[in-house]
Simulated scan of single mutants.
Amino acid sequence: MATLQEQTLVIIPARLASARLPGKPLADIGGQPMVVRVARQATLAGVGRVAVATDSREIAAAVEAAGFEAVMTREDHQSGSDRVFEAAQIMDPEGRADIILNVQGDIPAIEPETIRRSVLPLASSPADLATLAVEIADEADRTNPNIVKIVGSPLGDGLLRALYFTRATAPYGDGPLYHHIGLYAWRRQALARFVALAPSTLEKRESLEQLRALEDGMRIDVAIVDSVPLGVDTPADLERARRILAADQAPSSRNGQ
């Protein structure tokens, strides 16, 4: 039987167009393009073959110059999920890989362990896809519509079964709220089914693509992790990422070293 690593493709969708931060995947962070940093972290996770899916020759060249795999995809994709599915078909036309992990290309400080956690629910449940969540600690985040919340039923051992995703404050009453982290580990058949669907009613209302899967009856399991990886959407986010990664890489000053 194939191992989980042999069954998994890790695909990072990346495009140059960005309303708030043009050229985002190639933004320099400590001497490396951001998308290359994500590819490096995904490779360190050791969960499967890693590639960047892009419609940009410039991005592909930067990725390949750093020693990683790039896959050229069409320019007309409406979402990262569509691009990831096309890349999976190119990388593995025989369909040997059963799990397709979509890792966003704008989370340069993500820990390899966080990437590994996004795949693990599929090893022990019949879920169609899996994703991640962090318990919300900041009171302001509970009412922030930019923080997507997961309403889920506990499965035990740091797992939930997702019932709904929303920008509202939910569920009502005492108890934890969970911040959704947008990594998706898909079973290949579920991703093929998903990209063939039209955008759904609740997806359009909440502007949340994952609701299309729930509305179609797919099961989404959620692994709870300890921290939210910094996403880079604005110039301010980029500067913060540069500071965080520079601090992480600075040599220790203890004992004169």
Rank of each mutant, 00 (worst) to 15 (best):
F85H: 14
D141E: 12
E6K: 04
L26S: 12
Q32E: 13
I100D: 00
L183R: 00
I99M: 01
R49Y: 03
S252D: 09
A123G: 06
A137N: 12
P93H: 09
A14D: 01
D226L: 12
D141C: 06
S227P: 00
D92M: 05
Q78N: 13
G31M: 00
V63G: 12
A196D: 15
I100H: 00
G175R: 15
L191E: 06
G217E: 10
P108L: 05
L197M: 12
P235L: 03
A185T: 06
Q89S: 13
A133W: 01
A97R: 11
A185W: 03
G31D: 02
L214I: 13
A109G: 13
F68Y: 15
G105K: 00
V103F: 09
G48Y: 03
E64S: 10
T169A: 08
V71Q: 02
Y164F: 15
L163H: 08
T73G: 02
P176N: 13
I12T: 01
A213K: 01
Y164C: 11
P33S: 07
P112R: 03
G105Y: 04
A27H: 04
A213I: 08
G23W: 03
L132M: 09
D55H: 11
V36R: 00
L230G: 02
Q5Y: 01
Q104G: 02
V225N: 03
R167T: 14
E75I: 11
T143Y: 01
Q32C: 05
A168D: 15
E86Q: 14
A223I: 09
D221S: 10
A65V: 00
W186D: 07
A190V: 13
T54V: 08
D76N: 15
I136A: 12
N146W: 07
R187D: 09
R167S: 13
P229T: 08
Q104F: 04
A88S: 13
G173E: 14
R83G: 08
G182H: 06
R240C: 11
A60H: 02
T166P: 04
Q7H: 04
V52Y: 05
R117K: 10
D55L: 07
A250M: 13
R49P: 00
F68H: 08
S207V: 09
A19G: 03
A17I: 04
V232I: 12
Q249K: 11
R187H: 07
A2W: 01
M72I: 12
D82P: 02
I90D: 01
E64H: 05
G48L: 06
A170R: 05
P108S: 07
D216C: 06
M91Y: 03
A170Y: 03
G48S: 04
G156Q: 11
M91A: 13
R243S: 14
Y164G: 10
A196S: 15
A39K: 01
T114M: 04
S56T: 05
V71I: 12
I99W: 00
R205D: 02
D174L: 12
L163W: 06
R116A: 10
D76Q: 14
S56G: 08
P121Q: 08
Q89N: 12
D128W: 01
E86W: 04
V232K: 02
L160P: 04
G67D: 02
N144Y: 11
I107S: 03
A61M: 10
R37A: 01
L16V: 02
A192K: 15
P199M: 13
Q78E: 14
P13C: 04
S200R: 15
A123Y: 02
D92I: 02
